[in-house]
């Protein structure tokens, strides 16, 4: 996926969100760190261009809500979680870069519920690569990609990775 395709996908998602939500003022965005936050920022900016309306953005680090804390290996360093608005009775748009097993989203949903009781939560992802292990569904998808389970999908965003692109890295098939 090229930088241009990413921009197109962000525009498409912004339009879909506007069309689907009459009361756009009730929306709040929560991005999953790190890249979900940058994607959410872009979508919010796109909506601002189209509707002249700023929407709140929170960031969510799901490290403490993961289900594999004591699996052998290093512990990831948690980053900042910052949701400085009330999410009660709001419509939360949750944003992540890649949707895979659905476990991150499960963790994110648990954490969001600890902040309050939103009216509803909808999911935005740039890439849906399949292989769901939990019943998780993304309402807004930039691109659906067929992958093998062992593949890696790397999302690079200008804000932190200098360029905009998505690459699919296939493990050399071991047959």
């Amino acid at each position: 996926m090229t930088g241009e395709e990413i921009s197109k996908a962000v525009e498409k998602i912004a339009v879909q969100i506007i069309n689907k939500n009459k009361n756009i003022k009730d929306l709040v965005f929560i991005g999953i760190v790190t890249r979900g936050v940058h994607l959410a920022t872009r979508i919010i900016n796109e909506i601002k261009k189209l509707k002249k309306l700023g929407l709140p953005l929170g960031m969510l680090d799901i490290t403490f809500y993961r289900d594999d804390v004591d699996s052998i290996g290093k512990q990831p360093l948690a980053k900042e979680t910052k949701i400085d608005f009330d999410i009660n009775d709001k419509k939360v748009i949750l944003v992540d870069d890649v949707l895979f097993t659905g476990r991150s989203i499960r963790a994110a949903l648990d954490e969001i519920m600890d902040f309050g009781r939103p009216n509803s939560v909808e999911l935005v992802v740039l890439i849906d690569r399949g292989h769901r292990e939990l019943p998780v569904y993304a309402e807004y998808v930039g691109k659906t990609v067929k992958t093998n389970y062992s593949d890696k999908v790397h999302v690079h965003l200008k804000e932190i990775d200098k360029t905009d692109r998505v690459v699919l890295v296939s493990k050399k098939s071991s047959r």
Partner: peptide, 10 residues
Amino acid sequence: LYLLAGGKSS
């Protein structure tokens, strides 16, 4: 506690 819980005795 968090750091000691991970990767224990590996």
